[in-house]
Computed example of a mutant assay.
Amino acid sequence: MEWYPLQEEVAKVVGERATNFYCYAISTKNECLICSMFFKKILDDLGIDFENFAFTEEEQDLMEYGRLLVSSPETIPASLFDKLKERYSEQQIVLITAFGSMMIATNLINTALKVELDDILLPYTKK
């Protein structure tokens, strides 16, 4: 599995914007500076202030799911799974979960290896 092809598949299911929110929520919860700033740049370039944005219910559910994948995957509430099951097929939920897990792995690799921010991302650490 490769990150970009999997990301494209998830975006086909939930949309590009929701995919970026999902990744940003995972990366900030995982405290991965490089990935958080990568997605902050994308959102800023789209004119989206993550802290003050009016998310759709679907986007909120995906972000909650992503954060729980990071912090406590064993305690994801049945009510959240029920919402996901209303919107997505079982195969799509597996896809979203696999992609979230890959995002978590990317965060951990960047953090463990102390990957430095690219110069293009440095300004986003100050916002």
Results as ranks from 00 to 15, higher is better:
residue 75 T to S: 13
residue 6 L to E: 04
residue 29 K to W: 07
residue 22 Y to P: 04
residue 13 V to L: 04
residue 83 K to W: 03
residue 51 E to A: 05
residue 3 W to P: 08
residue 109 I to N: 12
residue 56 T to I: 06
residue 53 F to I: 10
residue 69 L to P: 00
residue 2 E to L: 13
residue 59 E to L: 03
residue 82 D to P: 02
residue 115 V to D: 02
residue 35 C to A: 07
residue 26 I to M: 09
residue 103 M to Q: 10
residue 28 T to H: 06
residue 82 D to K: 09
residue 65 Y to M: 14
residue 106 T to C: 13
residue 2 E to F: 04
residue 106 T to N: 14
residue 87 R to D: 01
residue 106 T to K: 06
residue 23 C to H: 03
residue 99 F to D: 01
residue 117 L to G: 05
residue 122 L to P: 09
residue 95 L to M: 09
residue 124 Y to K: 01
residue 34 I to M: 02
residue 90 E to M: 03
residue 22 Y to T: 05
residue 86 E to R: 07
residue 49 D to M: 02
residue 58 E to K: 11
residue 23 C to N: 13
residue 93 I to Q: 09
residue 54 A to N: 13
residue 67 R to C: 15
residue 111 T to S: 12
residue 18 A to Q: 10
residue 25 A to T: 08
residue 84 L to H: 02
residue 74 E to W: 15
residue 51 E to W: 13
residue 3 W to L: 12
residue 77 P to M: 08
residue 63 M to T: 07
residue 34 I to A: 11
residue 118 D to F: 08
residue 102 M to C: 08
residue 70 V to A: 15
residue 68 L to D: 06
residue 12 K to L: 14
residue 91 Q to T: 10
residue 101 S to L: 08
residue 46 L to T: 00
residue 35 C to M: 02
residue 117 L to I: 10
residue 109 I to V: 14
residue 84 L to D: 01
residue 71 S to D: 14
residue 94 V to I: 09
residue 81 F to M: 11
residue 81 F to I: 04
residue 67 R to H: 14
residue 65 Y to G: 06
residue 38 F to C: 03
residue 59 E to C: 00
residue 61 D to F: 06
residue 29 K to A: 09
residue 62 L to W: 01
residue 20 N to I: 10
residue 5 P to C: 00
residue 72 S to W: 15
residue 12 K to A: 08
residue 88 Y to H: 06
residue 103 M to E: 11
residue 104 I to T: 12
residue 9 E to H: 04
residue 111 T to K: 14
residue 106 T to L: 05
residue 92 Q to K: 06
residue 100 G to V: 05
residue 54 A to S: 08
residue 15 G to D: 00
residue 71 S to L: 13
residue 70 V to F: 06
residue 119 D to I: 13
residue 51 E to Y: 10
residue 78 A to C: 05
residue 47 G to Q: 09
residue 57 E to S: 14
residue 8 E to R: 11
residue 69 L to M: 15
residue 84 L to Y: 01
residue 35 C to D: 09
residue 5 P to F: 00
residue 78 A to N: 12
residue 69 L to A: 14
residue 34 I to R: 03
residue 119 D to Q: 12
residue 8 E to Y: 02
residue 30 N to L: 05
residue 6 L to M: 14
residue 114 K to I: 12
residue 37 M to S: 12
residue 80 L to M: 12
residue 98 A to L: 09
residue 83 K to L: 09
residue 39 F to Q: 03
residue 46 L to R: 12
residue 20 N to A: 10
residue 45 D to H: 05
residue 36 S to R: 07
residue 25 A to K: 06
residue 54 A to Q: 06
residue 25 A to W: 04
residue 100 G to P: 04
residue 84 L to I: 03
residue 50 F to V: 01
residue 56 T to V: 07
residue 89 S to E: 08
residue 41 K to Y: 01
residue 61 D to T: 11
residue 103 M to Y: 01
residue 90 E to I: 10
residue 111 T to F: 10
residue 2 E to V: 01
residue 16 E to H: 05
residue 38 F to N: 04
residue 29 K to N: 02
residue 28 T to V: 11
residue 88 Y to T: 03
residue 82 D to Y: 09
residue 3 W to E: 06
residue 116 E to M: 07
